[in-house]
């Protein structure tokens, strides 16, 4: 059974169909890439899945339950976490507090306990601290726990965003252009990191990325968007050979009889 499935999802902003009848699904533990030229609607798909936008038409189901149009925090509570294309850390907070914020929804205590600060709350805060420090340790950020998040180098900020998303204990992680602005060495590191995260935390990952090397290098399956429509889906090899995809990226005329490799997989 698929973990996340989009069924003919359309979203319209005024007269513009940003995403049009897109369907695809992600299985438990799968690493799927979502690519497309600029303005193809990749980030909009992310925003639909995470509840920032509600789809005009179509269904989105996560773990068998409809999530379309739910508030983002409720969708996160179901187990979808994300990072952002342009880093959105909490700028006034330390590295530690950024991650601690993401543990907020797992708290077992409410406002009265937070005010009274009894032994229960102290134990829970200690548990959260241990969890956060473990995560920071895995991602090599433990030494920076009290640094302001904005003082970190760019690559570390990207990592911190992933850590923060992982702290919500997701089953599906959405990464929005994690390689943007990275140099080739950092990109190789990132590819290893994404693989590692997927295995270590037994996650499904949906990756939006411009960098073909990264996408082709790690994704098991790739979906291609162009002008809000899904034009292809398949393994990296299939996508690379797909004339529609080549046309979308290079602006070439599509071949007269397009053999849409792999789109019959679904």
């Amino acid at each position: 059974m698929s973990l996340l499935s989009l069924d003919n999802v359309t979203v319209q902003f005024g007269g513009l169909k940003a995403v049009s009848e897109v369907s695809f699904s992600i299985a438990e533990g799968e690493l799927v890439g979502l690519i497309g030229p600029n303005g193809a609607g990749k980030t909009t798909v992310f925003n639909l899945i995470t509840g920032v936008y509600a789809p005009t038409e179509g269904k989105i189901a996560f773990a068998g339950k409809a999530v379309a149009g739910k508030r983002p925090y409720l969708i996160t509570a179901r187990g979808i976490a994300r990072t952002f294309q342009n880093i959105r850390l909490f700028p006034s907070m330390t590295v530690f507090d950024n991650v601690r914020c993401a543990c907020n929804m797992h708290l077992k205590h409410g406002i009265s306990h937070a005010l009274w600060r009894g032994a229960k709350v102290a134990a829970e805060e200690a548990r959260i601290e241990a969890e956060v420090m473990e995560l920071l340790g895995i991602f090599d950020l433990a030494d920076d726990r009290d640094a302001n998040c904005k003082s970190l180098p760019y690559g570390a900020q990207r990592r911190l965003e992933i850590v923060r998303a992982l702290a919500t204990k997701p089953r599906l992680l959405l990464l929005d252009e994690p390689a943007a602005g990275m140099n080739p060495t950092e990109k190789v590191e990132l590819m290893k990191l994404i693989r590692f995260v997927q295995e270590k935390f037994a996650l499904a990952v949906l990756l939006v990325e411009h960098d073909m090397k990264v996408v082709m290098g790690i994704c098991e399956r790739i979906a291609v968007l162009d002008y809000g429509q899904k034009i292809a889906e398949g393994t990296p090899a299939e996508i690379r050979a797909n004339p529609k995809v080549i046309a979308a990226y290079l602006g070439k005329e599509a071949s007269p009889e397009p053999t849409v490799g792999g789109s019959s997989l679904h």
């Binding site: 920032v52 996160t76 909490f90 914020c101």
Partner: peptide, 16 residues
Amino acid sequence: LAVRDDEIAAESMGIN
């Protein structure tokens, strides 16, 4: 503080 810093990010981290 999360609400003040970035509302969209806060919602995405499960904060109501």
